[in-house]
Write a protein that binds this DNA or RNA. Structure first.
Lengths: 164, 164
DNA sequence: CATCCACTGAGCAATATGCCCAGTCAAACC
DNA sequence: GGTTTGACTGGGCATATTGCTCAGTGGATG
């Protein structure tokens, strides 16, 4: 038991197929991959049992939801209060993602907003959070590359990731 | 024709239901929302016709794919070469997302890596891209809040977003 | 009052699902 | 060598789901 087996090429191909047709029935996927229905079903089940799949929310476009504005707020947090700050940020609905970064005690906060005023308000909330020392807000002007994993999936699908 | 209608409460509830059970059959969703099967089918179809849904790739966990390391590379780009830089970055498989930010000509690059050496190599590639002046790499140490939209969806589901 | 739109409820043929089982095959194990 | 394990196949079967169409209802619009 290694505790965590990497996905193999078949899994990668399955994920690629799903990327193409997310709501495709299992049968369709099976045909596409040249596998039996049973196998695909088993793989699929294993995939989300293993937690390979994130929440569906990731697929939803905030812009379509009415929040066309997106920004990245870099914040400096007083030491040891990271969890505390995270808890506070979690309470702000417009906070979409929070990462703890390496340098010192930096936190990267992704927020969405309805408009500039809204963003100003939210940035204010973030700054006002106890434990937050300094913030720097940068607007996302354009998505140059939308979140993607296909290149890595294709790599994984191409060769067997076996040790030898 | 306004050209872009915001989602209404029903859409939001549908998305929430999907967030809970991504592969739920339409029938199950219909029952859950207290709507007819026909309606849910129509809504669903409309949702992705409108582009409300991002690619399925967003749901895949890079860590499970064999890239447990994640980093944010902030780069400074020489003016007017944004698109050019984006094109180059797009060629690097480990580059997962690229945003053009407001301040000056800053670009936020999200990368994943197999390990520290791998990250070093990738960061080097980014820096070596023509048009990139300066980079600063920060490791993602912990996901404090994973990408989420549920709070905003719940808000949208709660009240009618009608003007009056 | 006529029209448009979203939703409902129903029907129907074709397909998919969930589940179970037996058999194959290769790699790992004793 | 002999065996066990794990993954995949192919089959079957009852039930649920899909895709599609049609008719009818109720509200909102002009």
């Amino acid at each position: 038991m290694t505790g965590e087996e990497p996905l193999d090429g078949v899994d990668a191909r399955l994920l690629l197929a799903l990327a193409d047709e997310p709501r495709a029935p299992v049968m369709a996927l099976a045909q596409r991959l040249g596998l039996s229905r049973n196998t695909v079903q088993a793989r699929l089940a294993k995939l989300d049992r293993r937690g390979v799949l994130h929440s569906f929310e990731r697929r939803i476009d905030p812009a379509a939801l009415g929040y066309p504005m997106s920004a990245v707020i870099t914040t400096r947090v007083t030491q040891r209060r990271l969890e505390e700050v995270a808890d506070v940020l979690r309470e702000i609905p417009e906070v979409v993602e929070v990462d703890g970064l390496s340098g010192e005690t930096d936190v990267l906060v992704r927020v969405v907003a309805v408009d500039a005023d809204d963003l100003y308000r939210i940035a204010g909330q973030v700054l006002a959070s106890p434990g937050v020392e300094r913030t720097s807000t940068a607007l996302v002007m354009q998505k140059l590359v939308g979140h993607r994993l296909a290149p890595l999936l294709r790599r994984a699908a191409g060769e067997s990731p076996e040790g030898e």
